[in-house]
Amino acid sequence: MAATSQRPWTSVPRPVCWLLAACLLLQLGWRLAQQHAPAQARPLPAAPPAGVARLASLGEPLAMSKAMLLYLQSFEDQAGVSLPWRELDYDRLAGWLETAQTLDPRSQYALVAAGEVYAGVADPQRARRMLDFVAASFAADPRRRWPAMAQAVLVAKHQLHDLPLALGYARMLRRLATGPQVPPWVREMEAFILEDMDQLDGARLVIGGLLASGQINDPHELAFLARRLDELARKKAQATP
């Protein structure tokens, strides 16, 4: 077998040598620049559609859902950068949460993240975007998702100080969260918010409706609501000139 002949470097044309040297210097310069350049945060990419994510999961949609939520959780801590939540694109964030929830509809993780983590941002518009996501998710499965909706009522009332928004969410709770596993106080939130808004007649109507509906059977809760009706009646009488 004949030995393979190798051409010496001196046989390489000089222009090619200069070109190789220039490429090497450019590569080294680019790496040094990357090391000394200030780190910049990457924007949150658009979420993959649920159908695409399901195909990519290779038959493990629950694992894919968890992986997507872990990706979101770690996205704020990028190499050399800590990205505040208020700088995230919340429409894209909602898309990631929705896809993760679609892959694992029984999990509460996406709803907890939306209502208790991302809605806590000091930006009312972004917080409302998360509450909208929670409300839409609740309407699709009230039996399992009422805890997240109750949290949304509290965020709207105490963080956003938006009583009309809290009232709308509480009304959804009363109308849709009717299963036996839902505690009475959840359906009573609407009446309490109406009272906060000085809509005493509305609060009395809600409590009277709850008493007449038969949804509440606990004697202590029934006695509590009866006392609330009496208190509202007294407040109404005192407010009437």
Rank of each mutant, 00 (worst) to 15 (best):
V112M: 12
A191F: 02
A135G: 06
G120P: 03
D201W: 01
P183C: 12
G202K: 00
A150R: 15
L163C: 05
L97M: 12
P164H: 07
I193A: 00
A122C: 07
M197Y: 03
A122M: 10
G202V: 00
G202F: 01
Q199M: 05
V155H: 01
M189V: 04
P180S: 13
R126C: 07
R145M: 14
R129D: 00
L93R: 02
G120F: 04
P147F: 06
V182W: 09
G120I: 04
R129P: 02
R204V: 02
V155K: 01
R145D: 14
R204F: 03
L176T: 05
F138A: 07
A122R: 14
Q101C: 04
A136D: 11
F133A: 01
D198C: 09
W185C: 10
R126K: 14
T178L: 12
A119G: 08
R187W: 04
A140F: 04
L205K: 10
E116R: 09
F133Q: 04
L131T: 09
R92H: 13
Q199Y: 01
D141C: 11
A122Q: 14
P124L: 09
R145L: 13
D123C: 09
A135Y: 03
A148E: 08
R106I: 08
A156P: 05
A203Y: 00
Y90W: 03
M172C: 06
G202S: 04
F133C: 04
V182E: 08
V134E: 12
D201S: 05
L154K: 11
W146T: 10
V186W: 12
V155N: 02
I193G: 00
P142R: 04
T99D: 06
A203I: 00
R143P: 08
Y169A: 09
T102F: 10
M172T: 05
D91N: 12
F192A: 15
R106Y: 12
T102S: 15
D196Q: 15
Q159D: 14
G120N: 08
H158G: 13
G179M: 12
A110M: 08
V186Q: 14
L205E: 12
R175F: 10
K157F: 04
V121S: 04
D162C: 11
T102P: 12
G115P: 08
F133P: 01
D196S: 13
E116N: 14
R128E: 12
E190L: 06
E98V: 07
T99M: 08
T99Q: 07
S107C: 11
E116I: 03
Q181D: 15
V155G: 02
G168L: 05
R128G: 06
E116Y: 11
G120Q: 07
A114E: 01
G120T: 06
M189P: 07
V117Y: 15
M197R: 02
Y90C: 02
R171W: 06
Q181I: 06
Y109M: 06
A203G: 02
L163F: 07
R204A: 08
E195T: 02
D162H: 10
A177F: 07
R144Q: 12
